[in-house]
Simulated scan of single mutants.
Amino acid sequence: MDSIGVKTYSDCVSECIVGTSAQRWRSKSANSAFLVAVIKTLQESDDNDTTVEWLCDGETLKQLESDFLVATKASELAADGQLSIRAGTDDTGDTPTVLVSPERAISVLPLSGEETVQTEIEDEEIVGRLWEKYETEWEMGIPESIDTPPYSRLLALADHKLGPEVSEDLDSAYAAVGTRAPDGRLEPVTVGLLIGAKHDLLLRDVVEWAETTTLATQGTVSKLKQQLEDVGVVTTESENIGVGRPRQRLTLADGSFKSLSPGELVANVQSVLA
């Protein structure tokens, strides 16, 4: 045993994964807080060469996907080849969190809150045997994917279909949503509808964006739009174009909301829906 110490999850990831020469890591873990730290740190880092192969169980993956903003970052890393996920064939949920590279091995034990007891091993023989063990387990694992679209795809398609100003406001709104606890956040499509109403967009264009990104179906968008109408936040104005059904244009029901920043807008609407 070469070293032991108390650190936060983020410090552990920054120092052990991103801040070293080792660029290939395997992690076996059901600790969702640690995995969120891995995802956020990799996504925010300028290091695009480090890869993590994560062996988990299905329940942990469900927890990850339930947090939209974390899931979009994980999806982004997967699309870039920095994160791979496989479901273990044994009970991964009962094992401690382990990080292994060809050069070193790290065990991470929860302490309290964001703190963890980190045990690091650099003995070549022990590390080599651990790497072989987890390589075998990785090869036996079942490949998993994240259904949530990558964050950059959401914004790129918004830029293309809805305009650069809308894309910028969406980015700001999602950043504001991310500062709240996961169970107190607006639905990602609800955020899109609010920004769409702020810019007086056609409902069909917002629906097309949501469907193209695989974020939601037309039915889901309509349901969430109705919810915003029911609480008096959003309204729609019909535009008769002479042929076919009138188009619906989204707008904010309270004109004073127009002057709010994207972050202020989602905060105000969150308080209304709470």
Score class of each variant (00 low, 15 high):
residue 157 L to A: 02
residue 157 L to R: 14
residue 157 L to D: 04
residue 157 L to I: 02
residue 157 L to N: 06
residue 158 A to P: 10
residue 158 A to C: 13
residue 158 A to I: 00
residue 158 A to S: 14
residue 158 A to T: 03
residue 158 A to L: 13
residue 159 D to H: 11
residue 159 D to T: 08
residue 160 H to F: 12
residue 161 K to Y: 12
residue 161 K to W: 14
residue 162 L to R: 09
residue 163 G to L: 07
residue 163 G to E: 01
residue 164 P to K: 15
residue 164 P to A: 13
residue 164 P to T: 02
residue 164 P to F: 09
residue 164 P to D: 09
residue 165 E to G: 03
residue 165 E to P: 10
residue 165 E to D: 13
residue 166 V to P: 12
residue 166 V to F: 11
residue 166 V to M: 11
residue 167 S to R: 06
residue 167 S to P: 09
residue 167 S to Q: 04
residue 167 S to E: 06
residue 168 E to M: 13
residue 168 E to H: 13
residue 169 D to Q: 05
residue 170 L to D: 00
residue 170 L to W: 01
residue 171 D to R: 12
residue 171 D to C: 00
residue 172 S to K: 14
residue 172 S to W: 03
residue 172 S to L: 14
residue 172 S to I: 00
residue 172 S to R: 15
residue 174 Y to W: 15
residue 174 Y to T: 05
residue 174 Y to Q: 12
residue 174 Y to V: 04
residue 177 V to G: 13
residue 177 V to T: 06
residue 177 V to N: 13
residue 177 V to S: 15
residue 177 V to E: 15
residue 178 G to S: 14
residue 178 G to A: 15
residue 178 G to P: 06
residue 179 T to G: 10
residue 179 T to S: 10
residue 179 T to Y: 06
residue 179 T to N: 10
residue 179 T to L: 12
residue 179 T to E: 09
residue 179 T to K: 15
residue 179 T to M: 08
residue 179 T to W: 08
residue 180 R to E: 00
residue 180 R to G: 03
residue 180 R to A: 11
residue 180 R to Y: 06
residue 181 A to W: 01
residue 181 A to Q: 09
residue 181 A to V: 03
residue 182 P to E: 03
residue 182 P to R: 08
residue 182 P to S: 05
residue 184 G to C: 13
residue 184 G to I: 06
residue 185 R to M: 12
residue 186 L to R: 11
residue 186 L to M: 14
residue 187 E to I: 00
residue 187 E to V: 00
residue 187 E to N: 14
residue 187 E to Q: 05
